[in-house]
Design a protein around this nucleic acid. Structure first.
Lengths: 195, 195
DNA sequence: GTCTATATGAAGATAGAC
DNA sequence: GTCTATCTTCATATAGAC
């Protein structure tokens, strides 16, 4: 749809060292389980098996770690948005967005809550411009122009539903593939899309 | 449906002093904004305008405050479950449950996230027996016997969707009544209920 | 890239006066 | 019911050696 506009504002893909990646991976898991505020640098260091000072050598502050984990996770979401934006018509674009986002959420099952629910992540997504821009593009695809409540309510419900369902205790025993198919089915129903 | 079984296991309605209620109210708002871990006793004390020690005089530990806020909020949910259980048939029960829960979520808009999303609240709901029992009754009404993934997936989506939508930034400008009506409409669609 | 050691502050929590 | 003062533990963060 507007591939050029998106190229100019891609998320920065900062190259990460192996040590940095270890920190990000450990942090993300701990954030998902305990929340950002509930996760200390000591916990991250312990999870990797190094000292706190070693972690601080990779990232100057805890905020930088939070930002890095968000960036890492959102790269997948950006790819989904770009794939959708590349479609000819709006219906196809929404279809592509839906399948990609749901696949992503199921793959990163258990990590999604760290991004979607956490108060610190919420503030980061709202205030950090590159993130806000990505979210805007995502909702732009989903909503179209001047959406009223009857368009925005199901969109908001869906966004919460996908994120919430993948880590819902009620669905802990459902395998990834089944979950993906069922999520897609009920997402289409919610948005009144053809299936 | 089974009113007697529920009476025996109602949430304890501990009478709260005015000072305790002030703590609970302030804590709930702060929990919703910063998460439980992100909220200190100093923040709660400052919000009320008293010292930390005054707060500790009302509740011996921070955990007790968390528990008290959860109890306070869940009393409304218990009433919704009881109203639903009092219905003759399952369809009516689900209808009643849905309307009550959605009304409640909209009324407590902005507080819901404190309960539904927070890692500490999640653990509390999972481990504290009275809470677990209430949640079980709620899902029992929604799911029936031996539910497969095609029943549990929409139920889990709905539970996340209601909680997420009421505090979703996309719906911040939607008034309570509109939100209530629209949520009910799309909840019915998701569960394939008559409207 | 990692360590030990340390500075500094804020957290949860208590003692005892008013 | 509230206060000031205090204790202890843990948090973020830094210095400097290996």
């Amino acid at each position: 749809m507007t591939p050029d506009a998106s190229v100019a504002t891609r998320l920065a893909s900062i190259p990460r060292s192996a040590a940095q990646t270890r920190v990000i991976t450990a942090a993300l898991e701990l954030f998902a389980e305990h929340g950002v505020s509930g996760t200390s640098l000591q916990m991250i260091a312990d999870a990797i098996g190094v000292s706190k000072a070693a972690v601080y050598h990779q990232f100057k502050t805890k905020d930088e770690i939070v930002l890095a984990t968000a960036e890492t996770e959102l790269i997948g979401l950006e790819a989904a948005v770009e794939a959708a934006e590349a479609q000819e018509d709006r219906l196809r674009a929404r279809e592509v967005l839906l399948t990609h986002v749901i696949s992503l959420a199921v793959e990163r099952r258990g990590m999604v809550s760290a991004l979607q629910g956490d108060p610190i992540m919420v503030r980061l997504l709202a205030e950090h411009e590159p993130f806000r821009h990505l979210i805007d593009r995502l909702y732009g695809l989903l909503l179209g122009e001047n959406p009223g409540p009857d368009t925005r309510v199901p969109a908001a419900m869906l966004s919460a539903a996908i994120g919430g369902a993948v880590s819902h205790p009620l669905l802990a025993d459902v395998d990834d593939e089944t979950l993906r198919v069922q999520l897609l089915r009920f997402a289409r129903r919610l948005l009144d899309l053809p299936h």
